[in-house]
């Protein structure tokens, strides 16, 4: 059953109705009730001078960044289809893109969250300012929970000045030890790249370092890059979004793990954040097991916050 909601109150009413009927509800196509929040696209506030913005969860990433571009600002969210991907979906899946290296994931710049809980109540976490420690930070729990605990209806972000003078240095034809040498070399340097991306396919490996700044700063980066190898420099190249992360490692163990996986499977395709240790890998490695005590806590939270099992979350696949 598809129902669309144009306001948080409508979403809440829908959740209450589903709850009373004892059927599941989700903002994706996984619930018995598919709650379509795309009509909810309002920008609730935008304070360029305070670097803060608040919007409905149905607003798309592209629409938000189009608004912010007018003030030379942006949110560092990378998705493959920004015109189709809503803010709610980004939060629920906790995606990570190339800009993660410099800006962190959405977890690091969400200031506040609005959600419909299992009782059909609209609840809030955080606020609208960049520093705030009032109350539990439960929005951290919701980010990446894939809808298992509620329906996200609104989000407040810290925004950033859009980097000017972007350039990238691409190192090709690398062996695994050379990939690791670049990672470690950058770690120990004072450089602060926007992105450090690894691409590996069919034995071909490349690392692309993206940075930004004035001509003097870019000149400095070029000198440092030439110490790490012989890269090809491309001006103005904003890093492209990549398929979702399905493998994470401590950064210093990533290369060894990928190399071992490649030796097992011969055919390996990898794309992702070399500096962070988060990649999309095909074939996908098995996800690490959740530690038993942590799994127990997750169960207790689910039991406390959704005892009726109203929210199935997004375990059956992605949608906008």
């Amino acid at each position: 059953m598809n129902v669309s909601a144009a306001t948080p109150a409508e979403a809440a009413a829908c959740v209450r109705a589903a709850g009373e009927a004892g059927i599941s509800c989700a903002a994706s196509k996984c619930g018995h009730v598919h709650l379509d929040l795309r009509p909810m696209q309002a920008v609730r506030f935008y304070q360029p001078g305070d670097l803060t913005v608040g919007a409905d969860a149905g607003l798309t990433v592209a629409a938000l960044n189009a608004l912010l571009a007018g003030h030379g600002q942006f949110v560092p969210i990378d998705v493959a289809e920004p015109e189709r991907t809503t803010l709610g979906a980004v939060l629920a899946r906790h995606g990570s893109g190339p800009l993660r290296q410099r800006f962190g994931t959405v977890r690091d710049f969400v200031l506040g969250l609005e959600m419909v809980n299992d009782r059909g109540e609209i609840v809030h976490c955080g606020g609208t300012v960049v520093k705030n420690v009032a109350g539990y930070d439960w929005m951290k729990l919701m980010i990446g929970a894939r809808g298992a605990l509620g329906i996200l209806t609104g989000v407040n972000f810290k925004v950033f000045p859009r980097p000017q003078g972007i350039e990238s240095a691409c190192f090709r034809g690398l062996s695994w030890p050379q990939v690791e040498a670049i990672r470690s070399g950058l770690l120990h340097s004072p450089l602060r790249p926007l992105a450090i991306e690894l691409q590996a396919r069919g034995g071909e490996r490349a690392v692309t370092v993206t940075y930004a700044g004035s001509a003097a700063v870019r000149g400095r980066y070029r000198r440092e890059m030439s110490r790490l190898g012989a890269p090809e420099i491309t001006e103005g190249a904003w890093p492209a979004a990549t398929p979702p992360t399905n493998a994470v490692y401590p950064p210093a163990q990533a290369v060894a793990a990928l190399q071992a996986w490649e030796e097992r499977h011969q055919q390996l395709s990898v794309t992702g954040r070399l500096g962070v240790g988060a990649f999309h890998v095909e074939p996908a490695p098995p996800p690490p097991p959740v530690a038993p005590a942590a799994a127990g806590l997750m169960r207790r939270l689910k039991q406390e916050l959704d005892p009726g099992g109203l929210f199935h979350g997004e375990d059956c696949g992605p949608s906008a």
């Binding site: 629920a92 899946r93 906790h94 995606g95 990570s96 993660r100 994931t105 977890r107 539990y136 930070d137 439960w138 951290k140 729990l141 980010i143 990446g144 929970a145 894939r146 979702p244 992360t245 399905n246 493998a247 994470v248 490692y249 401590p250 950064p251 962070v276 240790g277 988060a278 996800p287 690490p288 959740v290 530690a291 005590a293 942590a294 127990g296 806590l297 997750m298 939270l301 375990d315």
Partner: peptide, 22 residues
């Protein structure tokens, strides 16, 4: 009881809840 949350990895996979953050 004792629980280990998170670890050295810089982020968790979707579906693993950010208990550390809470």
């Amino acid at each position: 009881s004792v629980a280990q949350l998170g670890g050295k990895a810089g982020e968790a996979l979707a579906g693993a809840w950010d208990l550390t953050g809470v």
